[in-house]
Design a protein around this nucleic acid. Structure first.
Length: 655
DNA sequence: CGCGGAGACCTTTTT
DNA sequence: GGTCTCCGCG
């Protein structure tokens, strides 16, 4: 599609007031937004007064990439206020942090860091009682859920985790302690970014951002939670030029508080035009038929009439396979088959429900020499050695970052949790000391065993705080100096890890300031995954592997959907209540509608569960499809497998 | 108080 | 298969 159709054009030219765009998969949602932004700029609206916001990093990247294709002037693109809610919150708060009780150089806690802070708070304020207190992970998750749904802790516990009712008092005390600790450490977690942004917009409506933004475009509006929706409303309060775009059928973040009722409420709250886009430009009619049949099994879905403008093509395939190994084999074969048909690898995507489902395939692809890029999986920047080195940069940036300090201190032999905390406390009391640990009071707290390494640490830190040191230089300094021995003594694959640290240094070259680099790492980096194939560089052709959640907004000619087994997809935890299951079905819908031409769905007979193989049934999402929309095949040798599997199971042989 | 080993426990999806 | 927790030794 090269030009806009009339209904898209109409939306693009919609100049004033609120507008809601309800648009099906493949109907050009993001396209409408980017064209509209280009249109506004053409009309002379300053780019710096236009905001494009969305929920995930991937869609934010995609949005900006597409805008680049439409707007000639580089500096105009750079001026557009564009990103995820979290990245925009970060930008805004860097400037105004003192108004919410933080310094400008606040740290951003990732999920693991947050858990550590919660753990520390538990240790401090909950006495070891007879009762077994929930783990830090459970507590943190609870806090986050309550925030995302915008309800008090008590209500969240009562509704979703009644087994924690006994701990209600402790949990509330802990929540306070957690907040206090974050303030002491000059740190915000992901939720605080939004909460504080929201707070500023409410209490200081005259701050720069809200007034300057005249046009707001929100993509994937069905994925916003109530806090995000309110932020948008507050930003648009003055000029009311708010356009939200979404598709209730693609709402897949309900589990973290997203509420597609936000879409429904929009006309009541804002009024304005409602547009619908139902023409699908992406998929063949055969794929859409499958998608429509599937989504019609949802009762809480608005009927949508997606129709394709493309000619009929191949029927989507459902392939029954034995297990993940065979699945990986067959998918690899098919990838090579399509490659022979002159379909480049970059037009093929492999999608799955959870990261682990891709592990076997990654191995197979490597063996067969197919270059690929994992868009989501093992989180590269969250591995221990990466975090170890980054901790040094964090304390340079924010000397109050307790988590990072403790991490560093505990690397010294003879220093464990207790000593590390004692040292940190002394350090914090003597604010003036800042980054020079070769200080008397501190040195006294260091056990003799660690004395030598302590001096080396002091030296390293001194080198890092010199004026004008770039993030890359810092990383290299730590890697070659202080961290080198530790790396080789504590990991058996130290060589590999060192190579990854070198890569981290290269990655950091894009960032001159520590603030930008650390921000990137915390907000975007956690999902950036390094390409596994070393040769996958630059413009080389590679296959994409991704979770369905992160595939939203993307499209491929060939799509492989893996692991359509009951319990995996839909996931065992999402069978109840019905809303959960319907969200899973929407997830399937999202996966299917990523595909332009050739869709292959794989159904394994055996899956892994708790380290054991288990027979499972085909996913209901496949079973409930009418015969005419798919072509079902069984992998070679599968005919007798059912009985073979049952027999093995009786003998309880592990296979 | 650090540290290593043994055992329990969970392993959805994202910022 | 990997992380988190607990326990006992030095």
């Amino acid at each position: 599609m090269t030009s806009l159709n009339p209904s898209q054009q109409q939306i693009v030219e919609h100049m004033e007031g609120p507008a809601l765009v309800i648009a099906g998969a493949g109907s050009g949602k993001t396209r409408v937004i980017t064209h509209r932004v280009a249109h506004l700029i053409e009309k002379g609206i300053p780019p710096s007064s236009i905001m494009m916001v969305t929920f995930t990093n991937k869609s934010a990247e995609e949005m900006l990439r597409r805008a680049e294709g439409l707007i000639a002037k580089r500096e105009q693109i750079n001026q557009i206020v564009s990103g995820t809610f979290h990245s925009l919150a970060n930008r805004f708060l860097r400037r105004y942090a003192p108004l919410v009780g933080h310094e400008h150089n606040f740290s951003i806690l990732d999920e693991e860091d947050s858990r550590d802070v919660v753990r520390a708070a538990i240790a401090e304020c909950i006495s070891k009682s007879e009762r077994k207190f929930p783990t830090a992970a459970v507590v943190r998750n609870l806090f986050s859920m309550a925030f995302n749904k915008n309800v008090p802790i008590a209500q969240q516990v009562e509704k979703e985790s009644p087994w924690l009712m006994d701990f209600l008092g402790e949990l509330e005390a802990l929540h306070t302690a957690y907040g206090k600790k974050k303030r002491e450490n000059n740190a915000m977690d992901f939720d605080d970014l939004l909460a504080n942004w929201h707070l500023l917009l409410t209490t200081k409506p005259d701050l720069e951002l809200a007034g300057r933004i005249r046009f707001i475009m929100v993509d994937e509006y069905q994925d916003t939670n109530s806090v995000q929706a309110e932020i948008v409303e507050l930003l648009a309060r003055q000029h009311r030029n708010l356009m939200v775009v979404g598709d209730d059928a693609q709402s897949i973040y309900g589990w973290r508080g997203a509420n597609f009722a936000n879409i429904l409420r929009f006309p009541d709250r804002f009024g304005g035009e409602v547009y619908r886009l139902e023409e699908n430009y992406r998929s063949t009619p055969n794929i859409l038929a499958l998608a429509n049949c599937s989504i019609n099994n949802n009762t809480a879905q608005f009927v949508k009439n997606l129709y394709s403008v493309k000619p009929e093509m191949e029927i989507p395939r459902v392939v029954h396979v034995y297990d993940q190994q065979q699945e990986a084999d067959l998918v690899t074969d098919q990838i090579l088959y399509y490659a022979d048909q002159d379909i480049p690898l970059r037009h093929m995507g492999v999608l799955y429900r959870n990261h682990m489902q891709s592990a076997v395939l990654q191995l197979r692809l490597t063996e067969r020499g197919i270059p690929f890029m994992v868009r989501s999986g093992i989180k590269f920047f969250e591995q221990a050695h990466i975090k170890d080195v980054v901790a040094f940069l964090k304390v340079v940036f924010n000397p109050l970052d307790e988590i990072a300090w403790l991490r560093i201190l505990k690397m010294l032999p003879g220093i464990g949790n207790t000593t590390a905390q004692r040292i940190f406390r002394i350090f914090r009391e003597q604010q003036a000391v800042r980054l020079s640990p070769d200080n008397e009071a501190l040195t006294k707290a260091v056990p003799a065993k660690a004395r030598e390494d302590w001096l080396r640490l002091a030296e390293t830190l001194k080198a890092l705080i010199r004026e004008g040191v770039t993030p890359t230089e810092m990383i290299d300094t730590v890697r070659q100096g202080f961290y080198h021995d530790r790396l080789y003594s504590s990991f058996d694959n130290a060589g590999e890890r060192e190579a990854e640290l070198k890569y981290l240094g290269e990655f950091a070259q894009k960032y001159r300031s520590l603030e930008r680099f650390l921000g990137q790492l915390a907000l975007v980096g956690s999902t950036v995954v390094r390409d596994y194939d070393e040769e996958t560089q630059g413009d080389e052709d590679y296959l994409t592997l991704t979770t369905i959640h992160q595939a939203k907004g993307l499209e491929w000619d060939v799509v492989f959907l893996l692991g359509l087994a009951e319990g995996q997809f839909p996931h065992a935890r999402c069978l109840e209540p019905p809303e959960r299951l319907e969200e899973e079905r929407r997830l399937f819908y999202v996966g299917v509608t990523r595909c332009k031409r050739y869709l292959e769905i794989y159904v394994p007979l055996v899956t892994f569960h708790n380290g054991m193989s288990e027979i499972c049934r085909a996913s209901r999402f496949v079973e409930e499809l009418p015969e005419h929309v798919v072509e079902v095949t069984k992998a070679v040798g599968l005919e007798n497998l059912q009985s073979r599997v049952s027999r093995r199971r009786e003998l309880s042989v592990d296979f």
